[in-house]
């Protein structure tokens, strides 16, 4: 891109240049891409068809038939995993299908025997039962699915016991923040030892979730006139860890940008709360406009300089 912007390549040579440097994938790369895409999407579609079928709860298809169907699918997925274990793409696709089928089997069990269990118990059990497979899978994507299941478990648990919906309750938000922070820290420690966990794309959803949760705690406390000190301390602590770690140790500009955005939103909300209490509306809006522009400019300029520094290394 920089060569294009610098005008180093003539217009009529650009497409040829894109082919040479591999921007345009060649026939072989397309073949591999199609192979993986068709395998993943095909196996996902068949697994989803099983989920949809069980959810339909077809009366003409007896209990035995349904259990046999799900369990046969699960066994077939595991057999395929064992058979194709040496091919990474095949192994991941079949194991993911097997992991999803655990959830389908648990849902079918609840549907058939009307156990009276809450939905959070299903997800908790699902997370526990998939754990051994996650341990053998050596896949960042499967571990991310495990973290997602834990998040759903805690959210559903709080829906039952804390009578809340989504981020309306501080304890729930804190639970999500704590859970994902723990996952983020664990991931950062383990990625040095386990090569398959060394994926930035897997870290980013965890960083975003922790950032959203802690920022929401600050906004919630400020807007609802709750005690601001506790969420503020957690927020400052989170920022104080995020910035030095992802600037000096890991050097990840995306996570730094998440921190900057959280900082801008948090400071603006706290400033707005203070301003509207002490000065008139016109002065408040003027100060807030200038504040957001300055904070946004400083953050973007800093992030750009860090990005440029990393690119020039």
């Amino acid at each position: 891109m920089r060569l294009i912007e610098a005008g180093a390549i003539k217009d009529d040579q650009l497409e040829h240049a894109a082919e040479i440097v591999g921007v345009y994938p060649d026939s072989s790369a397309w073949r591999t891409f199609m192979d993986k895409t068709l395998l993943y999407t095909g196996s996902a579609a068949i697994t989803l068809s099983l989920l949809f079928f069980i959810a339909y709860n077809w009366a003409n298809f007896g209990r035995f038939g349904k259990f046999a169907l799900v369990q046969t699918f699960m066994i077939a997925a595991i057999v395929a995993y064992v058979k194709f274990g040496n091919k990474r793409t095949h192994a991941q696709a079949t194991l993911t299908a097997a992991i999803i089928s655990i959830g389908v089997l648990l849902a079918l069990f609840g549907q058939t025997y009307q156990t009276g269990a809450d939905p959070w118990q299903l997800f908790a059990l699902w997370a526990v039962l998939m754990l051994p497979w996650a341990l053998i899978a050596n896949s960042a994507a499967i571990w991310l699915i495990w973290v997602v299941l834990l998040n759903i478990t805690f959210l559903l648990h709080q829906m039952v016991f804390a009578n809340f919906w989504w981020f309306g309750s501080a304890p729930v938000t804190f639970t999500i923040f704590a859970l994902n922070s723990f996952a983020l820290i664990a991931w950062e420690i383990l990625r040095k030892r386990c090569q398959f966990l060394d994926r930035d794309w897997a870290i980013w959803p965890l960083a975003v979730t922790t950032g959203v949760a802690i920022t929401w705690m600050v906004i919630d406390a400020a807007l609802r006139s709750r005690v601001l000190a506790t969420p503020l301390l957690w927020w400052i602590g989170w920022l104080a860890i995020i910035y030095p770690y992802y600037r000096l140790v890991r050097k990840d500009v995306f996570v730094l940008a998440v921190g900057c955005l959280s900082g801008i939103v948090g400071i603006t909300v706290i400033a707005a709360k203070g301003l509207f209490k002490s000065v008139d509306d016109i002065a408040s809006f003027l100060v807030l406009t200038v504040l957001v522009v300055i904070l946004g400019s400083v953050a973007a300029a800093w992030l750009r300089s860090v990005y440029q520094e990393l690119n020039s290394q």
Binding site: L261, T268, V292, L295, L303, R304
Partner: peptide, 21 residues
């Protein structure tokens, strides 16, 4: 090397701040 163009998330942050302002 000159100035690197901003990554998408910095552009998104700038867009969000512009909207909020």
């Amino acid at each position: 090397a000159g100035h690197a163009s901003s990554p998408w998330f910095v552009n998104a942050l700038t867009g969000f701040c512009g909207w909020l302002a």
